[in-house]
Design a protein around this nucleic acid. Structure first.
Lengths: 238, 238
DNA sequence: TGTACATCAGTGAACGCGCGTTCACTGATGTAC
DNA sequence: TGTACATCAGTGAACGCGCGTTCACTGATGTAC
């Protein structure tokens, strides 16, 4: 029989979670300066006045620490996005999309190395475990939520019935039917498709800005991003 | 007075450029397996049967080797894109765009670490020097070329005059006017805008696929990519 | 064509650094009776 | 409430590894006359 399941029962438990948090916080600041590849257990331990082997009481190894940082970052970004949606609950869908996009950009600019950890090149030798999957979907689900609400409210413009209309290939139609079945069976696959495209577009733009591809191409990245986000929303029918 | 400017004049010159090429080739294979952060001068030298310090006869330091690899990769991708355009010179603009996109994707899938080096998170501690700028613009100029040709041929649909139309902010309008002035003064800024957006979208999609963000979301990445590329082209008015 | 000198590729040793991880240990904290 | 034992955080030393870069050197290749 387990003695108790309530957390932080003893002083030891409290100390344990406090130090775990300190390790994560210190690791986060190291990440911010040196990037994921430069994150070192020894350096973190040093900063905390611990001997390097002590960290192994809290994390099995370096990869597990990295995983915890990734989960934390996904959740932090998820929170920011959810907050943007909550703050604009009464607004028009298009403005909600733009607000969410700007919130995501704000988070990314404030924590560029964490953004790179989530959306940049994979860390060599590190394979993301299952734990990161669910937090990783929060942002895209939040963005999709805007589209779904507009669809159910009947305000989603079917702008695709124009000259720009392009038929989906059967394979993609099939894949999207499965995806829609999981997320929202009432959603037409073409709306799902547009949503996915907008999602990749938003992060593509952000990655280009953060990773320096658009340097020298546009001057005012904030304005360009907002215009692009509004265009995405319009193309989504929002 | 310099003795001669013709290259490979002597056996020494020939050996020099042969070994430089060998170093680059070996470095490229190391890049492919370990990523940019794991690229090591010593390992490259070891593979070539050289002592590590010998590499310094050919490259001043690790960063310069990395720069050479980046330039090589940009040029390789630029060649592939140009070849796709040349092979489809007689086709409809929309199909040319799709062909170029597929060519870029093919290159990226074949050389994922080089793709990551160009379009992934910046290598920590490495600042890309001026040498990489010009080769880095080749792909986007090639893609823009399709749009420009369609515009000058008068076949570019102005689909933006629909409900999806969104006005550009004055700042972006100003930035794009400058950009258009450099690339093609005859191009409307809104076309430039759409082109930039499509460009970021194409690479956003590709990065998501290569970096694992769309794993589990769509099954058939090739089909999704092609449908998305065709949609981009349609939205561009191609 | 031959010789004296300059250039340069490659060597091998060294400097100084940092890393992840293991292991036997000590002392403090917590638990059961 | 007090005692005996179990748990666990943190220590310090060690293993084995790899890295970028410098430097004085040797011997081969190239150049000028």
């Amino acid at each position: 029989m387990t003695p108790s399941t309530s957390p932080l029962r003893t002083a030891r438990d409290r100390a344990r979670s406090a130090i775990t948090a300190e390790i994560l916080a210190t690791a986060r600041t190291h990440l911010a300066t040196d990037g994921a590849a430069g994150l070192s257990l020894r350096a973190v331990a040093r900063d905390l006045g611990l001997v390097s082997s002590a960290v192994y009481r809290y994390f099995e190894n370096r990869d597990q620490l990295l995983t915890a940082l990734i989960v934390e970052a996904y959740d932090s970004l998820g929170d920011v996005t959810d907050a943007a949606l909550a703050a604009t609950a009464a607004d028009a869908p298009r403005e909600r999309w733009v607000a969410a996009a700007l919130a995501i950009r704000g988070w990314a600019l404030a924590r560029p190395q964490e953004y790179a950890l989530l959306y940049g090149s994979p860390v060599p030798g590190y394979a993301a475990p299952q734990d990161t999957v669910v937090p990783g979907t929060r942002v895209s689900l939040a963005l999709m939520q805007i589209v779904r609400e507009a669809h159910h409210a009947g305000t989603l413009r079917r702008h695709r019935r124009t000259a720009a209309d392009v038929a989906l290939s059967p394979v993609v139609e099939h894949d999207l039917t499965a995806l829609v079945g999981v997320i929202d069976p009432a959603l037409p696959t073409i709306v799902m498709f547009d949503g996915l495209v907008a999602w990749t577009q938003l992060f593509g733009l952000l990655s280009f800005e953060l990773f320096g591809q658009t340097k020298g191409v546009v001057e005012d990245h904030a304005a360009f991003f907002e215009d692009a986000a509004r265009t995405m929303a319009a193309r989504l029918g929002l």
